[in-house]
Nucleic acid binder design. Sequence first.
DNA 1: ATCAAAAATTAGGCTGACCTAAATTATGAT
DNA 2: ATCATAATTTAGGTCAGCCTAATTTTTGAT
Lengths: 225, 225
Amino acid sequence: MPQKISENIQDYLKRIYEFTLSGGRASTNQLAQALGISAASVTNMVQKLSKTEPPYLTYEKHQGVKLTAFGQQAALKIIRRHRLIEIYLVEKLGYTWDEVHAEAEILEHAMSSLLEKRIDAALDHPKFDPHGDPIPDINLEIPEIEQTALSSLKIGNKGHVLRVPNEDPQVLRYLGKFGIRPGAHIKLISRTPYDQTMRIKITETGNEAIIGPSLGKKISIAKDS
Amino acid sequence: MPQKISENIQDYLKRIYEFTLSGGRASTNQLAQALGISAASVTNMVQKLSKTEPPYLTYEKHQGVKLTAFGQQAALKIIRRHRLIEIYLVEKLGYTWDEVHAEAEILEHAMSSLLEKRIDAALDHPKFDPHGDPIPDINLEIPEIEQTALSSLKIGNKGHVLRVPNEDPQVLRYLGKFGIRPGAHIKLISRTPYDQTMRIKITETGNEAIIGPSLGKKISIAKDS
DNA sequence: ATCAAAAATTAGGCTGACCTAAATTATGAT
DNA sequence: ATCATAATTTAGGTCAGCCTAATTTTTGAT
Ligand SMILES: [Mn+2]
Ligand SMILES: [Mn+2]
Ligand SMILES: [Mn+2]
Ligand SMILES: [Mn+2]
């Protein structure tokens, strides 16, 4: 019997999913920091989640955790709701893309299957959230998309933006100011020698923007021609 | 300092508000039943809520509770959100009026001030929810409306519906089938002698409906001419 | 006025989810 | 290979919000 799953656990699973997207395992400290709680609490919880029937994750002492297929489905369900809410708020209620993440972080836990269906239908089954993250479909399938970090561009290369980091409203407002959003076409103008700061040109707006290397790693693009 | 208020407490305050609308105090058992918890738990909680600074309610042993002005504001805030959600779901997401109460009961706790503002604006500051209940305005003012119970009509009298009970989806579907909804014009055709069952005619649909006395007490109307 | 039944309260526990402090295990620089 | 430091786990709490059982208070029918 899939027991009812608390809001807290939903957030654990979502974080673990995100941290293990590129393979590997999520560490105790990583989760503690992301969830804003102590490492001891995380250890305690993941031990519990590894002993449910069926288990949500596999836990090996000192080796971190990894979701089971069961846990992954649970995570994807929340992620679908989170991203549907984000795009709904932008499309239908006039939110800006820097406002929606915090809101969705709460609403995702209060959303029924029915509301999920209605919102999905109202938006005509959207495929991406406002930050370019893919929305798992009704069967929780999520398309694999070929993507590169902005920071890996060579000078003079062109590309278009696929995905921007969605946590930090300040960053989103900064990016928005220059028109750096999913779909925007960009070209790498220059890179400073020591700290690797990039100057990029955005085709649509004609703007130039300065992007540091750590932010550059978090912006996903597809290379053009 | 108005401490952050848990979802549980929000539900306590809302129930107490409803039970004390017509003056008087809310009893321990009444609340226990409405909240689906034990009477002992209610006693415990209301004692706590009477000792906060400022207190949410006044508690007198064996005499039930009553909201303070402070508690009433807190209750009205949730009620505003509850009713805004209900009307939004009906107007914008194709919900039927029997589906929205359960949904709002959850979403009301997950709604931010910003979302409240946006939904209110999207609906152009609606005054009533789908069941005819008034929505407190942004300042939590709620209009006083003269209303009578349907069951108090005399044979041949006419009136129009102001408010229907919103908890029970089955009842709402039954009423909906005959067109008994806020605004509908009705006329009392007959009343059976012993159990007081009423037969009423709905002008808009031409339907006749059978309404028992306990349901009749929960439907509010205004008498016409 | 009496007293059984109903309502409410008190006492004592439980669970989920968190905490800090102490102990253990892993890691990486020398 | 050693060992200081970092990461993790264990031990022993707290707190909110619920429970049941026992007790006390109120109420209403006689
Ligand atoms: Mn969340
Ligand atoms: Mn997003
Ligand atoms: Mn509620
Ligand atoms: Mn309602």
